[in-house]
Amino acid sequence: MTDLATRYLGLALRNPLVASASPLSQTAEGVRALADAGVGAVVLPSLFEEQVRQEQLRDLRVTEPHDESFGEALSYFPSRADSAGAGAHYLHLVERAVGAADALGVPVVASLNGSSPGGWAGFAASLQDAGAAAIELNVYLVPGDPHVSGRDVEDWHVEILRTVRDVVSVPVAVKLSPHFSSVGEMALRLDGAGAAGLVLFNRFLPPDVDLETVSVHPHVSLSGPEEARLPRTWIAILRSRVRASLAATTGVATGEDVVKYLLAGADVVMTASALLRHGEAYAATLLAGLEDWMVRKGFASVDDVRGLLAVPPGTDATAYERSAYVSALDGARRTYGDLRMRDDA
């Protein structure tokens, strides 16, 4: 009998498989279906900064003319949580999703998506009040202005996290980009600023080009296993270097992919693409693949597996990864021939 019990963000999970944000979790019924399928936790789709700001502006337009009235007059107006808009709908989703998953002991994680510091992040308090067990902060930021410095971008991430941490007591995870000049230092800064978890990595969705209409074409593609190598590398490096929980995301297609992430040091493994391809019931297949491997290899619990292939504490991670790079090139040369430019090329 294998023990899949896991802790993530200080929460007790029945197993390390987490359904990440996707259309499957955008309704309470969908969350219940994922919980019934066996996942350990569910992340809801994000509420976006732009949606929160629109509601804040609308509320301001309603209340501003009454600023000179006596203070109690403001209590006659609906709070943001009661306003008819995206925020109110999202809070309703959180409440219903928590009710749907609670009977099975499956925590529901709410998600906020933004890119700039500001008061919108304070909406996290409403998510906590609605029953969210934790909050995933998805900072989706592609700095299009070439005058913005890398340090400014990093500081914005930390400021957004601190704004959220100041208004909630539930754990907060940050979904990271892989494109920082120093992912490790960014992880350490967020860890020091109070992130309870780091999710590696966010998938950016750059547009494609439609050659028939000669136009930019927004396009979303599901991830594949080849995309798991980069987050797996950083999880292996960070395993012994941060206090925060580590969540793996991207490239999970089979139970073997779940195992690889756990070996690298992930506390939980998130998936959306596999469940979208095969349906919620595929969660059971992924878990069965994990358990089959554990039985075959003689592991009794996921704690026995986690981090076995992480970069050992005290190791020079830069030299460690460069050694792996050189070894990979040597292997490629033996397979495909000398990769260097030849005189007859």
Rank of each mutant, 00 (worst) to 15 (best):
F70W: 12
R61D: 12
G71P: 11
L127H: 04
E55Y: 02
R53I: 14
L141H: 14
V139H: 13
L141T: 09
F77E: 08
L104V: 00
D59N: 09
E50P: 03
G85Y: 09
G131Q: 09
T27I: 04
P65H: 01
A133D: 05
A125G: 06
L74P: 01
G85F: 09
L93S: 04
P117D: 07
A41F: 05
T63A: 13
G105H: 08
E136L: 13
P117K: 09
H147G: 08
A35L: 06
R53E: 12
L91I: 02
L44C: 03
R96V: 02
A19T: 09
V62P: 02
A130D: 02
E72Y: 03
L137S: 11
A73I: 12
N138R: 09
A125W: 03
V43R: 07
A101Q: 10
A121H: 11
A130C: 03
P143Y: 04
A101D: 06
E68R: 15
L47Y: 05
L137N: 11
L141N: 15
S126N: 12
A130F: 04
L141K: 12
P78M: 15
A130V: 01
Y76A: 15
L93M: 00
L137C: 13
S25D: 00
L127D: 03
L44P: 06
Q54E: 13
G71Q: 10
A100I: 05
A130N: 00
E72H: 02
L24K: 12
A86H: 14
V148C: 07
P117L: 08
V94G: 02
H66P: 02
V52C: 00
G118T: 05
P23N: 10
P78V: 10
F70Q: 07
Q54G: 01
S115I: 05
I135Q: 08
V94Y: 04
H89A: 15
G38P: 12
L104A: 11
V42Q: 02
A21E: 09
N113S: 13
S69I: 01
V148M: 08
L24D: 12
A124P: 01
H66F: 15
D59Q: 15
R96N: 07
A88E: 10
